[in-house]
Design a protein around this nucleic acid. Structure first.
Lengths: 213, 213
DNA sequence: ACCTGAACACCGTTCAAGT
DNA sequence: ACCTGAACACCGTTCAAGT
């Protein structure tokens, strides 16, 4: 005779995410999760293959939330949008540092999120990169932006910036220089030049596109 | 009566580094290290406080090696030197991915390397950033470079670049755009303009420095 | 002074036995 | 159909007892 379920996969993942943020990955034990959802550890294996599987589910849920956070307005000014995207990225990482770290860290294959969920989360960056740098350089430009933003945030969270100075300033500096570097690639395309607020992005130089090497 | 030591701290750290690369961090157990150096696990605690301490020693040894790998020549052309630095960075990460990952990952405080050893390893980047972007922006420029390089390499190692395309090309693109972005900050300073190979760095535009925001 | 076996607490995971 | 206690293998760590 079936009795009503005492927990659910959603409960388990939610509990795991809370434990991850408060106790870190080593504290994310099956027993801790079980206790929080009100069952014994063996019961978790009805919903989850093993601990690595649970870590993957936590990572994917976090990627999904990140993707939602990164859906920027589309103001018509790609430079401003890129800055907004960068700040949203960083704010998310500050809000759930352990979950963020899980997304971009390498680990056992079973813990890695599926590719298409990652792709969906980075779509806004790709779209903005195409607007800024032109379709030809969109992929490389998006990778440059994502690498920089993720690298900055990871090092910030890891405490790897140890020379003092203002990190907010360094972050703003990066956004500014990155926007300039990606914007100068192609001559102005008028269709994206409407609605720009003066002074928010550096002027375009109209240089010839450089070979991608 | 003292008997001759059957192992040493250097042996232990070396064994741990090999295990880390072949088995990953979860495989780096005290028992595995002990077996490799030819003692029993409890003996390790004569040389090492605990596992976190061993992980820290492994990380610091790796940082030290990275720092040595990053001592670039100083060709007189900061743009070329920056490219060389970036490639050395990436080559090191490819050669020992698990050790590299340990450096820039956040983890329990006891596993983190000392600040001054990290500072020493990043000194070349800071010096080149000063040459390229001028002393005023040296710190922010170095952070931008390091963030980008580390972010790119971390994502590459984590398999987070999943849209296909040529990663070597994306890396070269990043170096090129980064050099351009950092070089355009200040008007030409003649003392650093000697010995440049034409075409290896983008032309300077002589724009006024922008406020750092 | 270093090394070891034994012991303890803890963890992931399986499984037969409960409801 | 879900849940549990018991069990097993494994791990980090301590410590008294060996040499």
């Amino acid at each position: 005779m079936p009795t009503p379920d005492r927990t659910s996969l959603a409960d388990i993942v939610a509990a795991a995410r809370q434990i991850l943020e408060s106790e870190g990955l080593p504290g994310l034990t099956m027993q801790a999760v079980a206790q929080r959802v009100g069952v014994r550890a063996p019961s978790l294996y009805k919903r989850v293959r093993n601990r690595d599987d649970l870590i993957r589910l936590v990572t994917e849920a976090t990627v999904h939330d990140l993707g939602e956070q990164l859906t920027v307005a589309g103001s018509g000014d790609p430079g401003r949008d890129l800055a907004e995207l960068a700040h949203a990225f960083r704010a998310f990482a500050h809000a759930q540092p352990a979950g963020y770290h899980l997304i971009f860290t390498s680990g056992p294959a079973d813990t890695r999120p599926s590719l298409d969920i990652l792709t969906r989360a980075t779509a806004p960056a790709l779209r903005l990169a195409a607007e800024l740098a032109g379709p030809e350089h969109a992929l490389s430009a998006a990778r440059m932006f994502t690498a920089w933003a993720n690298g900055f945030i990871s090092m910030e969270l890891a405490g790897a910036f140890n020379l003092g100075g203002d990190l907010d300033e360094a972050f703003a500096f990066g956004i500014d220089r990155l926007t300039a570097a990606l914007t100068t690639l192609d001559p102005p395309r008028p269709s994206f030049d409407t609605g720009r607020t003066p002074g928010t992005t550096p002027p375009r130089h109209g240089r010839q596109p450089r070979p991608a090497e």
